[in-house]
Design a protein around this nucleic acid. Structure first.
Lengths: 131, 131
DNA sequence: TATTTGTTATATAATAAGTATAACAAATAT
DNA sequence: ATATTTGTTATACTTATTATATAACAAATA
């Protein structure tokens, strides 16, 4: 699997796992209907505890990105199933705000920030385009 | 002062303080050369401990946003002093990535995300325009 | 000179993060 | 049918983080 844990990071391991799975889906490495590896096997792969991965999966479920079927596995939901509610949109905006504010205070221009946005989009989408 | 603490938030208090000071600067509520309130007075205002605010100030200093003069106070640095190094730009991009990725996976379009960006920009800049 | 300032130190408590084992019952594979 | 794998649940433990509470120090300021 594509996940790489940075043990010295200030970002918790379960959060690193969550983010990298999300980025993997955005990048098209895996898509709707695909099953995630079992918490035990992924934990063994990453060299971390089962519960750490389990926490990440439940975070993904809370975000509406996957469905966990008890005693079976975790499946990536389809785009139709993931509604994109107004609450979710608002949450994204709330997450965006401190990042943008920090960038501006550090002296980044609107153009610079929008340029970075495009880089992030490209980084997440281009590999899929290459198929 | 404009800072509002949400005690039930999963975001640590010192981090809430840091973010809201940054947003205050971005919004133009306070600018370069201005001094932040003393850690003791702000802590009293917010009803939190001195060290919590102190931690926030040192985080702001580490980000290059303020300068702490020992036994004197904390001053907001000028835009010229805040260099905006390539490392900082890269950090902003790194912060942006998981937020954008999550938005996309949840089904937000590029246009929707860019529209939210503009809302955030407006929210941070318009009040200053009104002066 | 008295007050305020950031700094430093120590102590304590609560919560979060992470690991370690173990057992259960349902789902799946053989 | 049996064995394995699965997510779930429970308990226990360690460590780090967050936050508070006091106190004292020395420099800056009023």
């Amino acid at each position: 699997m594509f996940i790489q844990i940075e043990p010295l990071s200030n970002v918790p391991i379960y959060e690193q796992v969550t983010r990298q799975i999300i980025e993997g889906i955005a990048r098209g490495d895996m898509g709707p209907g695909d099953t995630l590896p079992s918490v035990r096997s992924l934990a063994a792969d990453l060299g971390v505890n089962m519960h750490t991965v389990n926490k990440s999966y439940h975070e993904l479920e809370a975000k509406g990105i996957i469905t966990i079927r008890a005693k079976s596995g975790a499946i990536i939901r389809s785009t139709e199933e993931r509604a994109l509610t107004p609450e979710q949109l608002q949450q994204i905006e709330k997450n965006l705000k401190p990042v943008v504010a920090e960038g501006m205070v550090l002296g980044a221009t609107v153009d610079q920030i929008e340029h970075m946005m495009k880089k992030v989009f490209a980084d997440l989408q281009l590999p899929a385009e290459g198929v």
